[in-house]
């Protein structure tokens, strides 16, 4: 599983690198693209297979973040119906987002801007 995670995760990053070098895409755009693609693939039920195959190799890249949004929305719809469209996505991604806010706050408290 470790090797599969390494190879699949690495390959997903290589696609991002090709986009940076060949299309001069900014990193923020790549992150957006990856989340959307992951979410759609999750919606189509394709990303689940990649997760089963590669584990963290599929979930650690930002496509995995999108996948989690899709999974969350589907599960919530199954549970509570239409309202799940509004509640499922962010709920599933809440750990990542909340952790980012919390650690960013902590970092800003203690760290000073540095020159390169």
């Amino acid at each position: 599983m470790l090797i599969k995670a390494f190879v699949v995760g690495g390959l997903i990053c290589v696609i991002g690198q090709l986009l940076i070098d060949k299309t001069k895409m900014m990193s923020a755009r790549i992150l957006v693209l990856y989340v959307c693609i992951g979410c759609i693939l999750g919606g189509l039920g394709i990303y689940q297979k990649l997760e089963e195959f590669a584990g963290a190799g599929a979930t650690v890249p930002l496509t995995g973040f999108g996948f989690r949004l899709a999974e969350g929305v589907k599960q919530e719809i199954d549970k509570i119906g239409f309202l799940g469209i509004f509640m499922g996505g962010i709920k599933a991604a809440s750990a990542g987002i909340t952790a980012a806010v919390f650690f960013a706050f902590l970092a800003a408290l203690f760290a000073e801007p540095k020159e390169k």
């Binding site: 790549i30 960013a104 800003a108």
Partner: peptide
């Protein structure tokens, strides 16, 4: 590392933490 450190969720975190530090002034 380029995309190797941008695409994983660590890159997402980096893009949240960076402006928080830079703009605290």
């Amino acid at each position: 590392c380029g995309a190797g450190t941008i695409v994983p969720i660590t890159g997402f975190a980096n893009s949240v933490v960076s402006p928080a530090i830079e703009f605290k002034k």
